[in-house]
């Protein structure tokens, strides 16, 4: 029963994925209004030559803030998990 449910739901899901792969824009020609603006104005607005770094730290700084917070939380979690184990051994 469980295997049948897994097979049915997975085949529906993968069917959607493959259909999306054919219905999406052709590979190599993406819609790009926002990115064209960023490529045009990176140097005059941020003074940086690297558009990717300009996007990370300037246009989308909130993403990087969240990412740094996630990394901090993960490090705190890993250190906490293994430190508790070490104390119990002694």
């Amino acid at each position: 029963m469980r295997k049948i449910a897994i097979a049915v739901s997975l085949s529906i899901f993968i069917g959607f994925l493959i259909a999306t792969a054919f219905l999406i824009h052709p590979f190599g020609y993406p819609p790009s209004e926002m990115d064209d603006y960023i490529i045009e104005n990176t140097q005059s607005e941020t003074g940086a030559n690297n558009a990717v770094t300009a996007v990370i730290f300037d246009y989308r700084g909130f993403d990087t803030l969240g990412e740094a917070t996630i990394l901090f939380t993960a490090v705190t979690g890993v250190v906490m998990l293994f430190r508790a184990k070490k104390k119990r051994e002694k």
């Binding site: 003074g47 940086a48 690297n50 770094t53 730290f57 990087t64 740094a68 250190v79």
Partner: peptide, 23 residues
């Protein structure tokens, strides 16, 4: 090309990622 605050933010995030992954 000095990108304003971008190099200093690079240093901060570099310290963060290097310390985090090393830890």
């Amino acid at each position: 090309s000095s990108g304003g605050v971008i190099p200093i933010m690079d240093i901060g995030v570099g310290l963060n990622v290097a310390g985090g992954l090393s830890a």
